[in-house]
Design a binder for these strands. Structure first.
Lengths: 156, 156
DNA sequence: CGGTTTGTTCGGTCAATACCGAACACTACG
DNA sequence: CGTAGTGTTCGGTATTGACCGAACAAACCG
């Protein structure tokens, strides 16, 4: 892997680390987006990323669990291959949607705690709930529109 | 602080820890959303959260820097007060918007690396770029619509 | 049934960092 | 100027967790 690609992969690592995944998981995603061919075995990844088998192994499992990458089993071959999921971005977008719902629920919970308090006290939490509720309703519509555009553009 | 509120505050700590802030910062935000009065001094926070002055101090500074809370200086008083920003949720939403732009830029960067490669190789990154571009364009519109709703509801 | 290739699990190490207590700085007022 | 009251900075501690190497397991071949 040349220096520029290594940099690209490292940037991915840093980005995904900032979003809650591990750096290694981010690196794998980055690499799977630029590698040739697009599917890679564990051995390929060990070599390309210069990481240990064990680190790659656990990172791969996590990413598969999150549906961010797909495991490709070739019949007759011992090796498994991995590739970036075609819907990985909508997946992670949905995960963010879920965070909005968490926030809305937190606000609801707080409002029950302040049930006896005057309106002015409760306003902070009502604002929080309503905003996250609004966004949680709008996000799926955005996804639908994106699917539409994707089809128009001839992806998939 | 009673047990239920402590739980609420702790939930906030965990939530914000999962988004990249520290647990203490999350606890402060949680507390500032349910406390009475809505503005609190450092001493109030030290007592309410049972944390050290130093931890509170650095957490407050971070939150102020991020515009998630506001510092209220009362003339004639030595103490500073802090309260949850009225626009804290739009602030953090904008921060997420910025993450989309980062992703789009990462994709662009990758595409320059694959400039010589055939279309099929580049497709993964084009999809990534286009989706994040789409969302980065739509998010501000969502915020505008939310502002509208907020005004109708009589917040602000 | 050995032996080779592939993948997982485990123990240990190292780095990062959240938090604390204490020392230090600043401010306002007597 | 001195003294409370208020806020920041610093060193140390303890926890967390990402990563590695090696041992282990499992699958497939001769």
């Amino acid at each position: 892997m040349d220096e520029l690609k290594r940099q690209f992969v490292e940037d991915f690592g840093l980005y995904f680390e900032s979003t809650g995944l591990t750096r290694m998981e981010g690196r794998i995603i980055g690499w799977l987006l630029i590698c040739d061919p697009p599917h890679q075995s564990m051995g390929d990844l060990v070599e390309a990323l210069g990481a240990s088998k064990s680190s790659i192994s656990v990172a791969l499992r996590t990413l598969v669990t999150l549906y961010l990458i797909e495991q490709v089993r070739v019949p007759g071959e011992r090796r498994d291959y991995y590739r970036a999921s075609s819907d990985m971005w909508t997946r992670s977008f949905r995960a963010r949607m879920h965070q909005l719902i968490e926030l809305r629920d937190l606000a609801e919970h707080g409002l029950t705690l302040l049930a006896e308090m005057p309106k002015a006290q409760r306003k902070r939490l009502e604002l929080m709930r309503d905003m996250n509720d609004f966004l949680a309703q709008e996000f799926p519509k955005l996804l639908d529109r994106w699917d539409e555009i994707k089809r128009e553009k001839g992806y998939d």
